[in-house]
C-alpha cells in the first residue's frame, strides 16, 4: 500500500501478510508511523484516490474484497466488518443525537423501521452498559463522558452484528479505570457473539492483556508475528526487545529503561535493507539486504540466527 506524495512515493504498508481466525483477537502494535492503522484502513477501502495504490490480496470469509466497487464494500462495512476509532468525539457527529447515529447505521443495513431502529439503539446502549439508555439515546455526544462515548461507538459498531471488529486505539484517549471497563466490555461481547477483533495499539501492556496473537510493525513492515506468549516472553526481533524493555514496570523499579536509539523513521526514507537496521544494536553486514519473514507460526524478520537471538534475548533479560 503506497501513497504518492510531493516528496515521493511512500510505502506506508510494505509486505504485510496476516490472518485473523474466527473468534480470535489479533493485536497490531507499533509506534507512530508504523503503518498499523493505514493497513487496516486500506483493506476496508477507506483510503482511495488517485494517489493511493494498494497491491496484494485481502480475503474476508474466503472472498476477495480488495478493489471491489465501493457499493459492494459499503454493504460490507458497518455490517460484516465494523470499525471503532480512537477518538470518539471526532468519530461521532456533534449535531445528531447518539441514538440517531446508531439508528442510521441500522437502517442502512436492515429493513427495520425508524421506530424499531430507535428501540434497537436503546437495547444496544443497554448492552454496552450505559446507564439509563432510554434517556441517553436522545442525548448528543457532548453530553457523554469520554468512556460513554467510546461505549456508544462500540454499540454502533455492534449494531449489525459484525463478524470482524477493527478497533483502532480504542482506549488510548481514556483513563486507566475507563480503559479497563472498555477492554472488559470488548472481551465480554466477543465471548457472547464470537466475533473476531483486530486491536490496533501502541501499548504493549494492552496487547499483553487482550491479544491472542500479535503483529509487531515497524516502518510499515511486519517485524514479528506470533502468539501473545511467543511475542512477549520469547521475542525474536530486536525491535520487539526494545519495545518490551522500554515499558516502565509496575512491579519493580529498573535502574534504567532499555531504549532504542534514535527516532521512529519516516516512511519516506526507509533504508533499502532491514528497516530497523539504523537503530539496531545487533546490525551486521547481512542487514543491508531486506530480511524475509521467517518461521512457521512464530515469524520474524531478522537475519540473526536462532541461537544468537536466544542468547541476545537472555542477555537483555539478565540486564534488566
Amino acid at each position: 500500500m503506497s501513497f504518492a506524495t510531493r516528496a515521493g512515493v511512500v510505502r506506508a504498508v510494505d509486505g504485510l501478510s496476516m490472518s485473523v481466525g474466527r473468534g480470535e483477537t489479533v493485536g497490531i502494535v507499533g509506534e507512530s508511523g508504523s503503518g498499523k492503522s493505514v493497513s487496516m484502513y486500506s483493506i476496508l477501502g477507506l483510503l482511495r484516490g488517485p494517489n493511493v495504490s494498494i497491491e496484494g490480496r485481502v480475503r474476508f470469509n474466503g472472498q476477495d474484497i480488495l478493489g471491489r466497487p465501493d457499493r459492494e464494500l459499503r454493504a460490507l462495512r458497518g455490517k460484516d466488518i465494523a470499525m471503532i476509532f480512537q477518538d470518539p468525539m471526532t468519530a461521532l457527529t456533534p449535531v445528531y443525537t447518539v441514538g440517531w447515529q446508531i439508528a442510521e447505521q441500522i437502517r442502512q443495513h436492515t429493513d427495520l423501521t425508524k421506530r424499531q431502529a430507535h428501540q434497537r439503539a436503546i437495547d444496544l446502549l443497554a448492552e454496552v452498559a450505559i446507564p439509563d439508555p432510554s434517556r441517553r439515546v436522545n442525548q448528543y455526544p457532548h453530553e457523554f463522558s469520554g468512556g460513554m462515548r467510546q461505549r456508544a461507538m462500540i454499540a454502533m459498531a455492534l449494531s449489525c452484528e459484525p463478524s470482524l471488529l477493527i478497533a483502532d486505539e480504542p482506549t488510548t484517549a481514556l483513563d486507566v479505570t475507563t480503559q479497563a471497563q472498555i477492554l472488559e466490555l470488548l472481551a465480554e461481547l466477543q465471548e457472547r457473539r464470537g466475533s473476531s477483533i483486530v486491536l490496533i495499539t501502541h501499548d504493549m501492556g494492552v496487547i499483553s492483556e487482550v491479544a491472542d496473537r500479535v503483529v509487531v510493525m515497524y516502518a510499515g513492515r511486519p517485524a514479528e508475528i506470533g502468539t501473545r506468549q511467543e511475542v512477549i516472553r520469547e521475542a525474536r526481533h530486536p525491535y520487539t526487545w526494545g519495545l518490551l524493555g522500554a515499558v516502565p514496570r509496575l512491579d519493580s523499579k529498573r535502574a534504567r529503561l532499555v531504549t532504542i536509539p534514535g527516532n521512529p523513521i519516516s516512511p519516506l526514507d526507509v533504508p533499502p535493507g532491514c528497516a530497523f537496521a539504523p537503530r539496531c544494536t545487533y546490525r551486521h553486514d547481512r542487514c543491508s539486504d531486506r530480511p524475509p519473514m521467517r518461521g512457521t507460526d512464530h515469524l520474524d524478520a531478522c537475519w540473526l540466527d536462532d541461537a544468537e537471538k536466544e542468547q541476545r534475548r537472555a542477555e537483555i533479560e539478565e540486564a534488566s
Binding site: 479505570t177 499483553s208 518490551l244
Partner: peptide, 11 residues
C-alpha cells in the same frame, strides 16, 4: 487494572 506485560515476572 493498569495493563502490564505478562512476561512471566509480573505479579
Amino acid at each position: 487494572v493498569a495493563p502490564e506485560l505478562d512476561d512471566g515476572r509480573a505479579r
